[in-house]
Design a protein around this nucleic acid. Sequence first.
DNA 1: TCTCTATTGAAAATCATTTTCAATTATAGA
DNA 2: TCTATAATTGAAAATGATTTTCAATAGAGA
Lengths: 151, 151
Amino acid sequence: MTVENWLKVLSDNGYRLTDSRRAVVEIVNDSSRAMTPLEVFDSARSSHPELGLVTVYRTLEKLEELHLIQRVHQPAGCQAFISARQGHQHMLLCQRCGQVTYFEGDDLDNLITNIADKTGYSIKEHWLQLFGLCAKCHSSNPNQVPGLFHS
Amino acid sequence: MTVENWLKVLSDNGYRLTDSRRAVVEIVNDSSRAMTPLEVFDSARSSHPELGLVTVYRTLEKLEELHLIQRVHQPAGCQAFISARQGHQHMLLCQRCGQVTYFEGDDLDNLITNIADKTGYSIKEHWLQLFGLCAKCHSSNPNQVPGLFHS
DNA sequence: TCTCTATTGAAAATCATTTTCAATTATAGA
DNA sequence: TCTATAATTGAAAATGATTTTCAATAGAGA
Ligand SMILES: [Mn+2]
Ligand SMILES: [Mn+2]
Ligand SMILES: [Zn+2]
Ligand SMILES: [Zn+2]
């Protein structure tokens, strides 16, 4: 989804298009890493110095509500957001550079049926996330201890 | 693991056994739901009224460090802790009552190999969590909208 | 252009968590 | 058992993140 798509969704849902929102949308839409509100703020201020952190929070809230972005849970914290994909998707996160790569084609049906049988639960949803090193980070220094995450 | 086991681990690691710690350990060890520091505090105070919330935070911190408990990530928040299992385990959470059930025997090797090939990532870890209704909650009212979680 | 109301950023408020600190207490050793 | 000592405690203060308040501003439809 492009910046223009996001702006159209905001507009179609009755939200006004302002410079502040455009600045936030441009940064978040473009990022392949999950960003915290403060990171978005710092980055967006280079093109829009009068932007307030409060507006970043408010814009991220709306983008999340419209399913344009989603919160990313990581060992080091769960405040960061990344551009969302449509439908059921999972992500793969680089423990060194933070790069997020979506993948599909997970086949958990057997696993889920088994667990449902064993436990008696009726299973409605699942979360699957993979962590590792992206090709670039892996080749640059495969043994370095990751710095982005604890534990 | 019993309360006594946990206390022994604390003691073996040079931590003193105090009434405050015992109160926290008893509550958390016994719970089959993930509990926030405030929930632990409220619950532990019935048997130990002079307990401070700070001590709950400090005790949970030590229990986590010793791998006796682990943080649980949920759509509604990521501040709750539950008794941990040894080794690689995953959990299944009831969206109505919060009950946590561990399961093993996930077979993600094929999936992970596929994704590694497709993406070029070197995959080190994974998170898998299932959400649904436990047998009890499902039979009592299978269609009710879950109240514990948002989104 | 004009009007109306959503949106803005600053400041204040709130909420969760951490730090500080002086008093207390668990525990190792005498 | 008694003592010395350092770990631990809870209250209060500090911090940090997020939310609310509010008066000024500015999109967007008429
Ligand atoms: Mn899936
Ligand atoms: Mn697994
Ligand atoms: Zn990387
Ligand atoms: Zn249940």
